[in-house]
Design a protein around this nucleic acid. Structure first.
Lengths: 222, 222
DNA sequence: AAGATCGGTTACCGAACAGTAACATGAAGC
DNA sequence: GCTTCATGTTACTGTTCGGTAACCGATCTT
């Protein structure tokens, strides 16, 4: 979402008589509706994928939920895989945004990490959270799978950097930062499995309880 | 694995002349090979599912990896869904075993919880770990999905009970036990996503680092 | 008013794949 | 040696579903 550029190549619809395309001389007509509808498709896909799973979601169903027919979807997205990838990118963008603001903020790195965790939790339970987490292990081609893995690795790296900064500034105790990052990410990612909209706790309340635990650990008296 | 009972009904193979079955009068012949091969099928399925995913694994491939053909699989398992379910049960059994020994053990509940975490981590990265975690959200019929959800909820409940016991005996500080259980389970379950056999750390080493983190938390000086 | 074209439809294709029918074989039991 | 049955095989079916071809009508431009 929220990026106009990466539109796929406009698919030249094969007509009976297809006159010479001469692609760059046509005066552009308002494409506004197009972009909006495209986003609607992506969002509906994200919701369907989260609810029914990627494979269980047929494009016929998805199209029907938007009150159109399947071929219409192909006007906006080249194929199902790309749909999932767009959803992934939308979720990713949300997290990267949080990440950037937390990296730029002042104060002890531990607090900045916790701020990130709040944003991350919100993203995970959001519309694109499921796709972000699970895109990778759906039925995707190898190149796309690699791209996703790479982008996710970037998130992980920056999260670890935040932890390392905390160790450096003393706000986080010495620890295996790699494993700690995995533990944190795991706890948060798992929300995507059990959290449902109707839950009693709001995402930020959950994040706060998680942070309390992350912060102080389990140990009582000993 | 390791339970002989729950064999599915022996499928009466339709023959050209199918003489009266009279089911309970035949003297049983040694079924040993049968059980062994059945377990081989389940194990191969578990590994294939973990590696390629449930949907990406076609039964033709799976059969080929066992040097047989697809219909042979149907001698041992009634359908693909049941295969996944058997894998799930195998993983579940492993965890329940750990759980029982930890519940029965002596000592502060925090230590018993940590012992459970070690066993749990081993199970997650084991052959059936993937199936345990992901069976539920594959393409399964509603009844099977429900059964799985129920069994998983049992694990969760017993894990939470362990935490509550820790709070009761003082070895774990006061906290939201429900959220804490989710955080712990999430961190561990996520191992199933990133852990690979060739990793530098063995599962119990990872578990130890996780436990260190769970125990003391992140907080440095403040 | 003409006509290109965007956004949409109906009707179809083809591949993948779970599951089945019918036949083949070899070893155990009488 | 004959039967019986477990265990395989080959060859097929039926369905689901992603993707495409070809037509259509409202709208904006000129």
């Amino acid at each position: 979402m929220s990026e106009a550029a990466p539109k796929y190549k406009v698919k030249p619809r094969t007509r009976k008589e297809l006159r010479a395309p001469s692609p760059w001389e046509g005066r552009r007509r308002p494409r506004l509706q197009n972009a909006l509808k495209r986003e609607a498709v992506i969002l509906a896909a994200a919701r369907a994928f989260r609810q029914r799973g990627y494979h269980k979601t047929s494009l016929d169903e998805l199209a029907a939920s938007l009150k159109v027919t399947k071929p219409t979807l192909y006007i906006y997205v080249p194929n199902k895989e790309a749909m999932l990838f767009e959803c992934f990118k939308a979720g990713l963008a949300q997290i990267q945004e949080t990440l950037e603001s937390c990296e730029a903020a002042r104060g002890p790195a531990r607090e900045r990490l916790f701020a990130f965790i709040r944003g991350y939790a919100a993203a995970i339970v959001g519309d694109f959270g499921w796709c972000m987490l699970r895109a990778e292990d759906q039925h995707l081609g190898a190149p796309m799978s690699r791209r996703i893995k790479l982008l996710k690795a970037g998130i992980d790296r920056r999260m670890r950097a935040l932890i390392e900064a905390g160790v450096a500034d003393g706000s986080i105790r010495e620890c295996d930062t790699r494993m700690t990052a995995f533990a944190l990410a795991g706890a948060l990612n798992w929300m995507g499995h059990w959290y449902r909209e109707d839950a009693t706790l709001k995402p930020d309340e959950i994040a706060d309880r998680f942070i309390d635990f992350f912060n102080k650990g389990l140990r009582g008296r000993d």
